[in-house]
Design a protein around this nucleic acid. Sequence first.
DNA 1: CATGAATGAGGGTTCATTCAT
DNA 2: GATGAATGAACCCTCATTCAT
Lengths: 186, 186, 186, 186
Amino acid sequence: MAASLNQVVGGEGDDRRAQLVAAAFRRVAEAGFEGLRLRQVAEDVGIDHSTLHHHFATKQDLVEAVAAHTTRQFWGTSPQAPDPASALRAHLATLRQMIVEQPGLFVVTVELDLRARRDPAVAAAMERHESGWRERLVEILTGLVPDPAASAELVIAAVKGVRLLPDVAGRVLHQLGEHLIGDGRG
Amino acid sequence: MAASLNQVVGGEGDDRRAQLVAAAFRRVAEAGFEGLRLRQVAEDVGIDHSTLHHHFATKQDLVEAVAAHTTRQFWGTSPQAPDPASALRAHLATLRQMIVEQPGLFVVTVELDLRARRDPAVAAAMERHESGWRERLVEILTGLVPDPAASAELVIAAVKGVRLLPDVAGRVLHQLGEHLIGDGRG
Amino acid sequence: MAASLNQVVGGEGDDRRAQLVAAAFRRVAEAGFEGLRLRQVAEDVGIDHSTLHHHFATKQDLVEAVAAHTTRQFWGTSPQAPDPASALRAHLATLRQMIVEQPGLFVVTVELDLRARRDPAVAAAMERHESGWRERLVEILTGLVPDPAASAELVIAAVKGVRLLPDVAGRVLHQLGEHLIGDGRG
Amino acid sequence: MAASLNQVVGGEGDDRRAQLVAAAFRRVAEAGFEGLRLRQVAEDVGIDHSTLHHHFATKQDLVEAVAAHTTRQFWGTSPQAPDPASALRAHLATLRQMIVEQPGLFVVTVELDLRARRDPAVAAAMERHESGWRERLVEILTGLVPDPAASAELVIAAVKGVRLLPDVAGRVLHQLGEHLIGDGRG
DNA sequence: CATGAATGAGGGTTCATTCAT
DNA sequence: GATGAATGAACCCTCATTCAT
């Protein structure tokens, strides 16, 4: 009774693992993996730092959970669009909005891209994430541009290039979209 | 004369600094700032780790020197081109070649972009570097595209987005270039 | 009857204790008290490490149980011999056989001897064990050697000295036995 | 000047490594390898615990130094004797005296014997030590007993068996000596 | 300019133990 | 009796930095 009430009311005890991952994510967004300290993560959640090891045996485990948690935040909702052009516009608009509203998410993504170079587990997570994104883009771009695969790569590159710059993301992605859409007309 | 004299007489000290910066640069390229260890840098150069502090009082000083050394490697040679289109093509070709041939340079650049978020000195260096690049791009794009400033931003974004991917850099940058050049005609 | 009933009804708990002691004994034989981990012991038995504390409130309790379990393995069977000489030979042969066949038992004994220096409970257990052994030896040696007490001490020392060396145990104990038996004759 | 004076007067700065090994040795004698703590060792010497790592990169290095330091304390002086019998008596008397006067030395030896089972470096040190001892014993026993090799093994066993018992060491070793010497007469 | 000893803060990790369920 | 979350002390080790030589 008390337990179920606790779950319903507070929900705080929901999942310590999730809390820890969220806290770690926040720390990485602020200080990078370079500045990720297990003691701080535990403190953020309000538990002893040794208790963290009860949920994540090693720091690496937590890092991998952060990678999964980060990539999971993409493509939660897939908006349906009547035509390829508006689908692309919607896609880019969503990304621009995410870049503006959740800058930390993209900071962590860059951190993960960098870490992937020395961390096979993270590399696998990022490749899975990126290939999903690529497929989605190719799907959208098919029928809109002559070479969907190449254009998808261009879109990915442009987004990656403005990930850390909310101020220019809108302009750049809009321009890119119009370029691609206009291209189909030519 | 003065330069060569400088190298002969007291230049060894400066040489050491350059050696240390180069070694640190290499370490960052391999292991990130997260994996940068002063002891290793000193050992790479063949001096005691205490001696390193005679050349760089603090680790931060070395990091800033790495930032300067990194940005300095761009735009060493500015190829002259008869017309804007070939100037842009040359610019992108140069970048593609650098990405392929000096991947470490771009890894460090991403590391610096990330570190710039928490390190004002690095931030200043990167902004200086990037505004120089932007100006150069605007110069090239003027007369070629309707909105040189916006297109420069797009180019920068695309390059940043493929910095870590030598395999797709060529395709993406080529496609972008043709887009921009073709756009001017329409 | 009572015994079998005990096993059926409430004996499982006692079984668990025995299992835990046996597992702890094995761990000490392999890794020493230095490497004794309650979690591993519990895991070896197939229970949660918290549950172990229901059977042994503290690690010290388990250690003392291991000491008791270890000393209990000696002198289970007392072979009857027609004369003192063959009694001594049988005693030494039994020990040699145990050293060869159950090396772990003697490793733990050495561990216990060492721990006894800082652990009064273990010290008491070992003293009890050793005085029983000594009495038995004096009994055997009486009528065989001039100073049974001193010779018993010599036998104990020699056995302790080859406890960890199954390869030389046979030779050494045999030689010692013949020395003692021959001595009586002279 | 000050430095040489310091060396002459206090001698304390003589060798930090030696001081640390001595302190570690003392700790092992008291608390076993199980209770060896680098922080305490450093504190005993009066330096920060991190400084200890400047002299011994890892705990294992210190342990190996302790093993070397321990075995080095044996056979420092080799007393010359006119005949084998008195040579054996002198050898055993020396050992008995060491056991009585330096009990810690033998406690550490037992600890090392035990650790040798899981530590190849320590095992090598102990084997070297023991084979040296064995050779010396064989040399002494040759001409005194029929089977010097076997008797050497018996002596080693007996000594090992009384290492931890200063009270009985004298009696046991004396009896053993007379046994061996008397044996030659028969 | 170079060295090696020393520092101290802090890192991840381990482990026996406790407690609510 | 059994579990899993939590604790806190302690562990070995790392690293940038300082200082006397």
